[in-house]
C-alpha cells in the first residue's frame, strides 16, 4: 500500500504499444476483453437501474407489472410517501453532520499527528508510533462494549460526538499521513526553519500545501466510510431522530417488508448523493481506495 502513488492510477495513457502482435489475434483478444468488461459493467449497474425503475411504479401495481421493465406510467408517489412518513430529511442532515465532522477532524488531527511522527524530534515518538501501529490491527467491534459503557457514563449517548469519536480515533489516517510526510525531503523543512518558520508554521505553510493529493484521498475515503457506518450508530443511539440515514433506512425493512416501491424509493434517495458525487469525481474516489485500501 505504501508503494502506491497517485500518479500510478492514470487511466488512458498508453502502456507499451504492442506493434508486433499478429493483428488478427490482437483484434480477437480486444473483442473478448470488451465483451467481458461490458458484461461485468452490466452486472454491476443493472441492480441499481432495476431498483430505480421499480421505485417509479405505483405501489399497488409492482407485483402485477413485474414483467414490464420500463414502468408504463412512472410516478414519484413512492418518494413522496416515504418522505412524508419518515424523517428522511433529518436523517440526511444527521449523516451529513457526522460525515463532514469526521472528515474535518480526521484531516486535521491526522495531518498533525502524521507530521509529528514523520518529522518530529521528541521523546516518546517511537512509543506513539507503536501505539498507532498497534491500534491499527484492532477490529473496531472489539471496543464497542466498553465504549458503549464509557459513552453512557459520560452521558453522551444520543449525541453526534459519541458516534464521531470512534471514527476520528481511527489510526489509519495518522499512519497514512506519516508515510506521506516521510516522503517530503528534510531539506525543505530546514529551509523553512532558516526563513524563521516555527514548527507549527512549517505545518501550515509547507506540509499542508504539499499534502493536498493525500488529503483528498483520505477525505473521500473517510466520507464514504462514515456515510456507510451502521453498527456503532445503531448501538449507541436509541433516539430515532438522531439516526444517520443508513441506520434509518436499514430499520425500515421491518415496517415496509412488502412495500417495495417505498422501500426502494428510500434506497434511491439514500444512494443518490454519493453516486452523484462519485460520477463527478470518479478518479478521486478510485485513488482514495487505491491509496487507503488498507483501512479496516
Amino acid at each position: 500500500m505504501t508503494t502506491l502513488s497517485t500518479d500510478e492510477l492514470d487511466f488512458g495513457d498508453g502502456g507499451p504499444e504492442v506493434q508486433h502482435e499478429g493483428s488478427w489475434y490482437d483484434t480477437v483478444a480486444k473483442a473478448v476483453a470488451h465483451l467481458v468488461l461490458l458484461f461485468f459493467s452490466a452486472v454491476m449497474t443493472i441492480p441499481f437501474v432495476w431498483a430505480f425503475l421499480t421505485s417509479l411504479k405505483p405501489e399497488n401495481k409492482i407485483f402485477t407489472t413485474i414483467r414490464q421493465i420500463i414502468p408504463a406510467d412512472p410516478t414519484f408517489a413512492n418518494y413522496v410517501n416515504v418522505w412524508m412518513q419518515n424523517p428522511l430529511d433529518r436523517w440526511i442532515l444527521n449523516s451529513l453532520v457526522l460525515a463532514v465532522g469526521v472528515v474535518f477532524f480526521t484531516l486535521l488531527l491526522d495531518t498533525l499527528a502524521g507530521y509529528a511522527l514523520a518529522k518530529g524530534d521528541f521523546k516518546g515518538k517511537s512509543l506513539v508510533y507503536t501505539l498507532v501501529i498497534g491500534t491499527l490491527v484492532i477490529p473496531p467491534q472489539v471496543v464497542l462494549v466498553p465504549l458503549y459503557l464509557e459513552m453512557n457514563a459520560l452521558n453522551w449517548s444520543n449525541t453526534y460526538w459519541a458516534i464521531m469519536v470512534l471514527y476520528i480515533a481511527n489510526p489509519f489516517g495518522t499512519f497514512m499521513m506519516r508515510q506521506f510526510f516521510l516522503g517530503i525531503p528534510d531539506s525543505l523543512i530546514e529551509a523553512a526553519r532558516m526563513d524563521g518558520c516555527s514548527t507549527f508554521q512549517i505545518y501550515t505553510r509547507v506540509m499542508l500545501p504539499l499534502a493536498k493529493p493525500a488529503l483528498s484521498s483520505l477525505g473521500v475515503f473517510t466520507f464514504i466510510f462514515v456515510w456507510g457506518a451502521f453498527l456503532w450508530p445503531l448501538v449507541i443511539l436509541n433516539d430515532s431522530s438522531m439516526y444517520p440515514l443508513q441506520v434509518g433506512i436499514g430499520l425500515l425493512t421491518g415496517r415496509y417488508s412488502s412495500q417495495w416501491g417505498q422501500l426502494l424509493a428510500a434506497v434511491v434517495i439514500a444512494a443518490l448523493p454519493v453516486i452523484a458525487a462519485y460520477l463527478l469525481a470518479q478518479r478521486t474516489f478510485m485513488e482514495g481506495i487505491a491509496l487507503t485500501g488498507g483501512k479496516g
Partner: peptide, 15 residues
C-alpha cells in the same frame, strides 16, 4: 468500464 464496476463500492452496505 472501471467506473461501472466500481459503482457498488461507493454505495453503502445497507443500500
Amino acid at each position: 468500464y472501471s467506473g461501472a464496476i466500481f459503482l457498488p463500492v461507493v454505495t453503502s452496505w445497507v443500500i
